[in-house]
């Protein structure tokens, strides 16, 4: 997709998102969905950059999200660090963990990367519940229940006042989206596409596969951790339930709907999936059952996600916009 079209699609999407509180500001149910869409859209975009553009089979995206959330929660609860700083520190910590995981694993062949990152995910549960986690303040299997809300210039951003929190998240989302778009389209982006195409070819151009993969891994981990932290201060409590396969699958559905490497398809995927997941919430344990079935069916029948058909539908409209400029 061309840069112009990508930015236009994103602009259109975020403009619509930005004015949503004007209509639904009073309805907490819908505001909650909107905030979750913003958060998940960024997390899923990061995953798309990792999988679709850098060609890394990482299955650790939810793990990084949870690491960010827990890091910020622990810092602000146990060490009394103001959330504004703890969120940024959580991002840095997650980025470092990303480097730590990436160092041994990005040199490996594709499936091994998937396996190691997924093993990191699976190990987080016993880690956070066990004595090691309790020692650093994870709260064991109970989790952390009293995470302070974000305070900025004397304003409290919490789940009591959804509209201000929405705009805080919106602001961060726009910044991170810009970073991701730059990453995809800049020299890095070209390098990644070359890497995905053929590592030997890229290597001959002097592009070190490992270095760039590590860079993208660190940066996306940072952003993911940042949004995990944001989420922690939004909901005010955390538990290892966030690591259940249920959450992982929701993120995966966003990718399947959006199409891997079809950015900003995942953003559309996030809108559909978050809404669907909220609507299915009353079904209890049938929700993951249905989610699992949706993945199977979508992977089988949706080749490139739904963004391509949508763009084909919208292309006359977009052409009008482009021509008017």
């Amino acid at each position: 997709m061309s840069l112009k079209r990508m930015i236009l699609t994103l602009c259109g999407f975020y403009c619509v998102m930005g004015i949503m509180p004007l209509f639904f500001g009073g309805t907490d149910y819908i505001m909650n969905i909107l905030i979750m869409i913003l958060i998940w859209a960024v997390v899923a975009s990061c995953w798309d950059v990792i999988m679709g553009f850098a060609g890394i089979f990482s299955f650790g995206q939810v793990a990084f999200y949870v690491i960010g959330a827990y890091a910020s929660a622990i810092l602000s609860v146990s060490m009394d660090i103001p959330p504004v700083f703890s969120i940024i520190m959580a991002g840095v910590i997650t980025g470092l963990v990303g480097v730590l995981v990436g160092l041994p694993c990005l040199r490996l062949a594709g499936p091994y990367v998937a396996l190691v990152t997924f093993a990191v995910h699976m190990t987080l549960v016993p880690f956070l519940r066990g004595p090691l986690g309790r020692a650093i303040g994870s709260g064991g299997s109970q989790g952390i229940l009293t995470i302070p809300p974000i305070k900025l210039f004397g304003l409290a951003f919490s789940s009591d006042q959804l509209v201000p929190f929405f705009y805080l998240t919106f602001f961060l989302t726009i910044i991170c989206t810009l970073v991701l778009v730059l990453m995809i389209k800049s020299y890095w982006g070209t390098a990644f596409l070359a890497l995905k195409d053929s590592e030997n070819f890229a290597a001959s151009l002097g592009i070190s596969a490992f270095k760039y993969k590590l860079m993208v891994f660190a940066l996306t981990s940072f952003i993911t951790g940042l949004f995990g932290a944001l989420y922690a201060h939004y909901v005010g409590m955390l538990s290892t339930k966030m690591l259940s396969m249920d959450v992982f699958t929701i993120l995966m559905i966003m990718m399947v709907i959006g199409g891997i490497g079809k950015y900003p398809g995942v953003v559309v995927g996030a809108v559909i999936t978050v809404t669907l997941s909220q609507l299915l919430a009353p079904l209890g344990m049938y929700r993951p059952l249905i989610m699992g079935a949706i993945v199977v069916v979508l992977v089988l029948f949706l080749r490139d996600g739904i963004i391509s058909p949508i763009i084909r539908l919208l292309s006359p409209l977009q052409r009008v916009v482009v021509e008017e400029e």
Partner: peptide, 15 residues
């Protein structure tokens, strides 16, 4: 795609 499909399948089966 196989990884994603089988992951979805496993969720479906478990629940």
């Amino acid at each position: 795609k196989v990884m994603m499909l089988t992951l979805g399948l496993s969720l479906f089966m478990d629940f």
